[in-house]
Computed example of a mutant assay.
Amino acid sequence: MSSDAFYPIGTPGQPWGVEEKAQWRAAQRRQRSYHDEVVRELDGLRADFDVSEYGRLNYGDEAYPLYAVRSRHVDTGLPTVLVTGGVHGYETSGVHGALQFLRDHALGYAGRVNLLVVPCVSPWGYERIQRWNPEAIDPNRSFRADSPAGESAALWDLAATVRSRCLMHIDLHETTDTDDSEFRPALAARDGKPLPAGGIPDGFYLVADSEHPQPAFQQAIIAAVARVTHIAPPDADGMIIGSPVTSEGVIEYPVKPLGLCAGITDAAFVTTTEVYPDSPRATPQQCNDAQVAAVCAAIDHALAHGGGREA
């Protein structure tokens, strides 16, 4: 590694090749169990929900079944809502917030919506507390029909079954201190680019779809989460992670062109949550609770407003 390198793999200014990606992959270590912490939780839900495998990832000698949880009785006359978590495996509350929602709140929506919940999109990343998959691909920039990421391709195909009739999709994420210390440096090194400016917002925020931002929907979620944990303030330039704040705790991205998970359906109501688990003002349980509050508020608002595009 040269003296001006900011990451221990690769040569500054040169994108990674096969050798560098293999070196990065070899450095990843399994730190927790997808089976013990996620699959067993799903097994406990089978009495009340349809828990089924929608795909399988095979990485070397490891196989990861992918699970979706659906309402036990699907009513084609009801709207469908989609909840996804663990697109980035290291973002823990996205996974466990989705599981907590299923355990504690999902049955309350029976007869009102058809639920489709995918708690852990990226199990290899979950086990290694990693943002990428083993090929050093970010699943959350890879949601498209010809996706190079197996995690994204499998969810894309699953979403095709509800894409045109999905009312709401909420994708559960976190922004962590390791975004600055590990993942942004790794991304810049992988792509042979300079290290960008960092900065981690302290608190919860949302990423809306800039093409259909649905401001009242976003603010309904912010109001619900504010009762659980604090909302991220803008920085001195009125930004959160480099994007203008459009309303309290909300920024916008063009989700479909960027290949983000939030763009996998044609839902009228779409958002991505961002919890800050490293804040001294939030506990892991508060982070899970914030995700659950966001999911419930998102469903409630979507149902109350009947799927129409808001101004």
Results as ranks from 00 to 15, higher is better:
117 V>Y: 05
255 V>G: 06
10 G>Q: 00
28 Q>R: 14
138 D>P: 01
304 A>L: 08
231 I>H: 01
299 I>K: 05
234 P>S: 03
135 E>R: 13
4 D>R: 14
92 T>V: 13
122 S>R: 03
29 R>W: 09
262 A>R: 09
146 D>E: 15
241 I>C: 07
22 A>L: 11
169 H>F: 08
73 H>N: 10
157 D>P: 00
131 R>H: 01
122 S>C: 10
159 A>F: 11
212 H>W: 12
138 D>F: 07
308 G>E: 13
185 P>Y: 00
123 P>G: 05
281 R>I: 00
204 F>M: 00
85 G>I: 08
263 G>A: 07
169 H>N: 14
198 G>K: 04
111 G>N: 06
207 V>M: 12
107 L>E: 11
259 G>F: 11
9 I>A: 01
298 A>Q: 09
303 L>C: 07
138 D>C: 04
286 Q>A: 09
298 A>L: 10
121 V>L: 15
232 A>S: 01
310 E>G: 14
146 D>F: 10
85 G>F: 04
99 L>C: 06
108 G>V: 12
24 W>K: 04
17 G>F: 10
65 P>Y: 00
223 A>G: 09
202 D>Y: 03
166 C>E: 05
19 E>F: 11
9 I>H: 02
37 E>A: 09
145 A>K: 14
299 I>N: 01
175 T>S: 09
62 E>K: 11
204 F>T: 01
156 W>E: 10
232 A>Q: 02
231 I>A: 02
188 A>C: 11
112 R>G: 02
253 Y>M: 14
198 G>S: 08
58 N>A: 15
308 G>I: 13
302 A>W: 01
139 P>T: 10
233 P>S: 00
22 A>M: 09
9 I>P: 00
167 L>R: 04
77 G>M: 04
53 E>C: 11
28 Q>P: 04
128 R>V: 02
57 L>S: 11
282 A>Q: 05
16 W>K: 05
52 S>P: 00
112 R>W: 03
94 G>D: 03
225 V>R: 03
119 P>R: 05
185 P>Q: 02
19 E>V: 14
230 H>F: 13
261 C>V: 12
103 R>H: 14
43 D>W: 08
